[in-house]
Amino acid sequence: MKLVVVLPMLAVLLGLRFVKPRMIVWLAAWWAAIFVTLRFGFATPIPVSVVKLYMGIVTLALTAYILADRERMRQVREPLTAFLVEQRYQPALMAVAVLIPVLAAVQVWAGMTAEAQPPSFARTVHPAPPDSITVHGTDYPLGTQDNPYRSLEGTNPAEFEERLQDGRRVYYENCFYCHGDLMAGQGLYASGLNPIPTNFQDPGTIAMLREAFLFWRISKGAPGLPEEGGPWQSAMPAWEKFLSDEEMWNVILFLYDFTDSRPRAVEAHS
C-alpha cells in the first residue's frame, strides 16, 4: 500500500460526508477515488486489465446504489438532462460531443502504432512436483521425503555444522553467480537471465517450500520442470550432473541457515 496515495483518497471520501455535495459530484468522486487507489495505491501495481474489471464492478455497484432510490435517481438524472437539453450548456455540450470522438480516434491510433511487445509466457514459479524422483540411482518419494540430515541439528550439532560448511562451499562454488551472495537473486548473471534467479530471502520461496521440493528443483533443474514451469527458458542447471546427493542436501541446509528461515514441515500422512 502506498499511503501517500491511499490516505488522501480516504480523506476525500470522508470529507464528502461533511461537504454533502450534489449527488452527481458524489458519484464522480467515489468512482475516481476508487480508481486512483486501485491504479496507483499499491506498491506492486495491479495489472491494467484487472483494474478495468474492478472498475466495471464499481460502476455497477454505484449504478445499483443510484437506481435503488427514486430521489437519488432524480438527483442524478436532472443535471444530466439539463446539460443535454438546456440552451445555456450548448457550447460545453458541443465541446464534449467533439472531444469524445477525438479521444476514441486517438485511442485507435495509439493501439495501432504501439511498440510491439514480445510474446510473454506466464510460467508457474512453483509447479507441482512429481510423486518421486530418482537421483543417482536412489528413489526419493517427494511427498514424504525429508532432508536426511535435518535431524542432526538436534542430535549431532557438530556434524550439522560441518554439513552447513560443506553446503556453504557448494553454494559459493556453484550457485552465487545467479542467486547472489545474499541469496536475494541478484548474482552477477541475474540481469542476463530470463526468468530471473529465485530470491531465497523472499518469504514466498524456500520458507514456504519443503526441503524435498528444493531437492527436486536442484537435482533436476530446468529440464526437469513440467511444461507450466517453462523448462525451455530457465537456466537452472540439473545439478545431479555436478553434485552428489549429499552435497545437494547440504546446500539445502545452508540455504535455510543463511536466510534464517525454516523449511515447511512434511504434513502428517494418514
Binding site: P101, V108, T113, P118
Partner: peptide, 28 residues
C-alpha cells in the same frame, strides 16, 4: 544469452487513418 525475440516490422503497415475516422464517426 537466453531466448530473446526479433520483431519483423510489417513492410505494408496499414494506415491508422481509416480506423480512426470510423471510430470517431461511430462514437459521434
Amino acid at each position: 544469452t537466453p531466448w530473446y525475440y526479433v520483431h519483423v516490422e510489417p513492410i505494408d503497415r496499414p494506415s491508422p487513418v481509416g480506423p480512426m475516422v470510423k471510430a470517431g464517426v461511430g462514437v459521434l
